[in-house]
Design a binder for these strands. Structure first.
Length: 497
RNA sequence: GGUCGGAUGGCCGAGUGGCUAGGCUCAGCUCUGCAAAAGCUGCUACAGCGGUUCGAAUCCGCUUUCGACCUCCA
């Protein structure tokens, strides 16, 4: 097993990954809040950690990957806030909470499937773990680090900070937080502004509510992840992932809660992906600049010049290192589309290439370069999941593949063994690890027969030098999105856009 | 205001001391009936100013500038 190094947000440096139990990894990733449709920004962590999940498996680890669904708390469907406050009647007309949660969970799952993200091992919901959360809160109260006020429970940050390194993960200083003069709801109840809610009393109009030792209410913002991660991964687990914007207060609070409840910090390695920006600004609900996944895939959004295939978006995200910001633009996405298409075609060419018969390479220099490019992919992934460099190397290999096919490079320039390595590298890295797949479905036999006929007719007319007919066939098919390619060997292939 | 992180060629985007990132665009060439695709060639950048060093995009300082977090937020 190669040594994997990953950047730990907690220590702010790359560290060698050492699992708690040899051969096993516990991975927890903060999942979506299903009060609205996922947008492009949400895609980043799920794709990033899908690759982490895939790569850890590739390294031979047995993985338990837990990603929660936040379906509880103080949320309302997007765009409905105003209506909610207008009247009780409006409330009767709107969806049941369960209905809304179901709708957006389904949409989220659809998005994940389109992105070719593997399913987590466990996908626990917050509403399914109210009891676990209540138990944990009771435990924290018992230990003296939480207090009840007006049927709500708050975590005593000041007390915690006097004994534990509160703020270390997010680089926060407690005194600064205490000086915070912002006026927030429920602030008066807290002993200190830095305290956070473990349980909140539900006002009469609040639709999601559960009985608890402190009255009817709902869990606080951070407790679900602590309760569910410890339930399924243990009190201490290997990797916790999420977006950088969750560093504070979410993950900082998770550490505090779990540390009190269990007596030790919950996580060995914290991983955070950076944001997707648009015009330099973070894409987010509060900025009103989101592009929803359905809009992205349909092109139905004023900013979008076209629709983008999920694989293009995935590829676009993986072309950048996960800890860098990634700025959205049509230009960048279109460039990714072309790049992916070229890379994928090279992969398909490679699969059809006849392996060289010789065990000796004619071109020793090329042989060595190919071997190096292939081998480096593993090193790049082991260096904090550098997918950008992996992709760059695959692009180094693409001209070799195309060159062999086109005859510019001799078939025996590389050895049979290296040809095998090349095949293996593309399969493993492109498909298994980066999780990319073909952008179009396999063509049906019928369509293939129809196209074969047209290709045949075109070939005849070309032989007769009737270029008007042959060009008409090619142009009309192109208009329909079927591109014909005259290959060097006289055959004709087609691709469908 | 506090904390943290960026500023790389036409665009996107890797890269922590010397060695080519890569992609897209653009130009030329090869192949082709023409095209497309593919291949080859060309395009040499690191915000600014100082400093350290034999040598810096890469280390240090300052300046300018953008952003994230500090509130729900992937």
């Amino acid at each position: 097993m190669s040594d994997l190094y990953l950047y730990n947000s907690y220590t702010r440096q790359k560290e060698k990954f050492e699992p708690i139990t040899p051969g096993h990894v516990g991975l927890y990733v903060c999942g979506p809040t299903v009060s609205g449709e996922s947008h492009m920004g949400h895609a980043r962590p799920y794709i990033t950690f899908d690759v982490v999940n895939r790569y850890l498996k590739h390294l031979g680890y047995k993985l338990r990957y837990v990603r929660n669904i936040t379906d509880a708390g103080h949320f309302e469907e997007e765009g409905r806030e105003a209506i909610d406050k207008v009247s009780v009647k409006a409330q009767l007309e709107k969806m049941e909470p369960m209905e809304m949660v179901h709708k957006y969970t389904s949409l989220f799952h659809l998005g994940m499937r389109l992105f070719n993200c593997e399913e987590p091992s466990i996908e626990p919901t917050a509403t399914g773990h109210i009891i676990e959360q209540i138990n944990m809160i009771e435990d924290i109260i018992k230990k003296g680090y939480a207090y009840e006020v007006n049927c709500s429970v708050y975590f005593d940050v000041k007390k915690y900070a006097s004994q534990y390194p509160y703020g270390k993960l997010s680089g926060r200083i407690l005194d600064d937080l205490l000086e915070n003069t912002r006026e927030l709801e429920g602030q008066q109840e807290k002993r200190d502004s830095a305290d956070f809610a473990l349980w909140k009393n539900a006002p009469p109009e609040h639709i999601m509510r559960w009985k608890s030792p402190w009255g009817e209410g709902f869990p606080g913002w951070h407790i679900e992840c602590s309760a569910m991660s410890s339930k399924y991964l243990g009190e201490t687990f290997d990797i916790h992932g999420g977006g950088m914007d969750l560093l504070f207060p979410h993950h900082e609070s998770e550490i505090a809660q779990s540390t009190i409840a269990h007596g030790h910090p919950p996580v060995h390695y914290w991983m955070h992906n950076n944001m997707i920006t648009i015009n330099g600004k973070k894409m987010g609900k509060s900025y009103n600049n989101v592009i929803k996944l359905s809009e992205l895939f349909s092109g139905n959004h004023p900013i979008l010049e076209q629709a983008y295939h999920p694989m293009v978006v995935r590829f676009y995200i993986l072309q950048t290192h996960y800890r860098s910001t990634l700025d959205f633009s049509n230009e960048a996405l279109q460039a990714s589309e072309k790049a992916l298409r070229r890379l994928w075609e090279a992969y398909e060419v490679l699969q059809k290439l006849v392996a060289p018969s010789d065990t000796e390479a004619i071109d020793a220099d090329l042989e060595n370069r190919v071997i190096t490019w292939c081998r480096e992919c593993e090193d790049f992934m082991c260096d904090d999941f550098n997918t950008a460099k992996v992709i760059a190397n695959l692009f180094e290999l693409a001209p070799v593949i195309n060159g062999i096919k086109g005859g510019q490079i001799l078939r025996n320039a590389i050895s049979a063994r290296t040809h095998g390595l090349l095949n293996e590298t593309f399969k493993v890295f492109l498909e298994d690890i980066l999780g990319l797949k073909a952008m179009q479905e396999q063509q049906t036999n019928k369509l293939d027969q129809v196209l074969s006929l047209l290709i045949e007719i075109r070939k005849d007319s070309k032989t007769r030098k009737d270029f008007a007919t042959s060009d008409q066939i090619r142009n009309k098919l192109a208009e329909a999105g079927v591109l014909l390619k005259d290959e060097k060997d006289g055959t004709v292939s087609y691709t469908i856009e």
